[in-house]
Design a binder for these strands. Structure first.
Ligand SMILES: [Mn+2]
Ligand SMILES: [Mn+2]
Ligand SMILES: [Zn+2]
Ligand SMILES: [Zn+2]
Lengths: 144, 144
DNA sequence: ACTGCAGTTGCGAATGCCTCGCAATAAGAC
DNA sequence: GTCTTATTGCGAGGCATTCGCAACTGCAGT
């Protein structure tokens, strides 16, 4: 059993879930990608390895992984499919270029500052922060 | 013609659109509410005034108002309907309590800081920022 | 290794939100 | 008031996601 397979099996086992073919295939795709993929895109890659895996199982695997904190689901736009990736902290937020569509990450302490401010001054205890910045990336600004 | 009707007519007229019954009804509902409503909820209120207004027209009105900068559309959760309200700046962001569901606003200069940082240090020019904080509100924290 | 069974899957149907196409209607310029 | 064409109601369609269920399979116990 490969390295990633063992890691996934451990994470699943601790939560009382089984390691199955579809789950491993979905995990391999998400863990080896650096981009934000839709369930359909993940399913396409999964089918390369095993064409019998159903789209429903891809959704079920992704939902389970999200519950276990293994992946992150993001809404990058109204009425768009969710995008999935390996889990990363709220500190690392999303910059989406409205021109080329690229999604970049930016990490700063801003999110932590907001969390502390809300907690100390307003009694609001943050569990998850989603920060999405739409705009024009450096490359697109230079080109236009 | 009422005050809000005149204001809406001006905004529409300047952009080459007509003031119609459905549009005025949708506007009245959104402008007189302080909450974040779904299109379906808006349609329900609109039907109280005029039962012939179709849900499609509510969607069409809301989309148009958003293009004109009159209303704001927000995604408050994955796989949830969009929520609509009178337009407000990105500075004012959303706190959603995962316990009672309430959505509050919080205004600070943090969003502006991020915009400036991204612009000055990374060449990314923000056009719209969506900041959504999930967590437990003060009332729910006290009750539990 | 064999068995048993609860967890998991594939499949198709269903759901929810939103958009479209089109003929009928009505706003507003003249 | 007439005319033009933007807008509407309505039904159908589209897309992402979820559900129900019988068949299958991981894996714990033996
Ligand atoms: Mn990301
Ligand atoms: Mn708001
Ligand atoms: Zn770009
Ligand atoms: Zn609350």
């Amino acid at each position: 059993m490969s390295r990633v397979a063992t890691e996934l099996k451990t994470a699943l086992g601790e939560a009382g879930h089984r390691l199955t073919g579809p789950r491993l295939a979905v995990w391999d795709v998400v863990a080896s990608s650096r981009s934000h993929l839709t369930a359909e895109e993940i399913a396409e890659s999964v089918r390369d390895r095993d064409p019998t895996v159903n789209l429903s199982s891809v959704y079920r695997s992704l939902s389970l992984f999200a519950e276990l904190g293994l992946v992150r689901e993001s809404n990058l736009g109204a009425n768009e499919a969710s995008h999935w990736e390996l889990a990363h902290s709220d500190e690392s937020f999303h910059l989406r270029c409205t021109s080329c569509g690229k999604v970049e990450h930016h990490t700063g302490d801003l999110v932590t500052q907001v969390e502390h401010h809300l907690s100390h001054h307003h009694g609001f205890h943050a569990s998850r922060v989603e920060l999405l910045v739409h705009g024009t990336c450096a490359e697109c600004a230079a080109t236009s």
